[in-house]
Write a protein that binds this DNA or RNA. Structure first.
Lengths: 207, 207
DNA sequence: TATTTTAGCTTACAGTTGTACGCTGAGATT
DNA sequence: AATCTCAGCGTACAACTGTAAGCTAAAATA
């Protein structure tokens, strides 16, 4: 196993994935990609594509998985920063997420677009990745605050929604406008934290 | 003016727009549309398309305007309901929005997708429509509560983001799951209201 | 009434797409 | 050493795309 042969196959498979990611941009979405162009950039004949993926959709789903992985790694990194540098949870998280958008903008774009895209399988795949993200945050909130599971989940869901959305807007702007955007999203997260906190307290009073 | 000629032209122009909207669906986005297919459904020759629009993008931008109009009409209707039926603001708004998603799902889909789509002009157009929506809500919040302008805007922005997002998710689900989704988004809006209220009070104390 | 304007048509073309089919040669297996 | 496997290639094709060019007939204008 893992002979020269299989190794080379993995290599061109990665070349295909990389080529596809490279061709994503502000004005080129996954559905705009053509099998032929991807194969061309990867340096293989169009028909050789099929040795690696059944069709473009299979490639795309692989890419979604990869982007989701990056996203989860990112979140762990954020938590590490919070634990070590001792910065504010909200601030650190938002800053880390914005770094993701700048450093891996094509991965983020893929998630962003395919979340409401044309293929049910894609939408489901992105939803799954986002849900992972939400659940990890919900667990964190549940352990760090005196939040019950339901409120923790809803709170996490809104936070992820708001940050994700701000990320989408951030893609198109720079400088001052961007700083203002970040400030706004931080306020939004504060609202959520306060508001959820209120209802949690009320709920525990009732209990 | 408004002779038989101009009248007929408007009619086929509308036929083109309608044909394009008809061809949108869960698995057919605007960028998947072809000029030829739209023309075919509208009942004209492909090349006659150019008598009405410079290219597909011009058609698309017109469609975005139309969808934005529908959206604003919807919001006014929601406010009327709130004033007359006297129901809860949050509940009525969410229910109204969900009706929009069911009754005009293709218009909603257009806004949803092109918001993060491939064309900067489209993204800007959708952002403009959404901003209208946010501003109207912000003014409402500012007048109905003791909220200052900044908090009103940020609050409105988060509410629209959360509802819009829930709408996107609602497109793919039905029944119980959907009811749960609606319940969650209502909680999220409550968080925002409470949280914003808290900071507003704090600000006015400081002042 | 004579002239101009124009929405819609037909024909035509060059470009791109996905993919079926069959071959080859280098690694893997026996 | 003989055989098998299979990643990658080249050719080929049918389906579709956007759009250029020029015609026609009916409405508008003068």
């Amino acid at each position: 196993m893992s002979g020269v042969r299989a190794q080379q196959k993995q290599k061109t498979r990665q070349a295909l994935i990389q080529a596809a990611f490279n061709q994503l941009s502000a004005d080129h979405s996954f559905s705009n990609l053509s099998l032929r162009e991807v194969a061309r950039e990867a340096g293989i004949a169009p028909t050789s594509f099929y040795r690696h993926f059944k069709d473009m959709d299979e490639l795309g789903l692989t890419m979604v998985d990869e982007a989701g992985l990056t996203l989860r790694q990112l979140m762990r990194q954020a938590r590490r920063r919070i634990a070590n540098d001792g910065g504010s949870v909200i601030n650190t998280s938002v800053v880390t997420f914005m770094e993701f958008i700048d450093n891996s903008s094509n991965q983020f774009r893929l998630l962003l677009r395919e979340r409401s895209g044309t293929s049910k399988a894609f939408r489901a795949a992105v939803a799954r990745e986002v849900k992972h993200f939400i659940l990890e945050l919900a667990h964190y909130l549940e352990s760090e605050t005196k939040c019950n599971a339901m409120h923790a989940y809803i709170q996490a869901e809104s936070m992820v929604t708001l940050v994700f959305n701000a990320g989408a807007e951030a893609l198109d702007i720079e400088g001052l406008q961007r700083d203002e955007l970040i400030e706004r999203v931080i306020w939004q997260l504060r609202y959520i934290t306060r508001g959820a906190g209120h209802y949690v307290r009320e709920t525990s009073k009732e209990a």
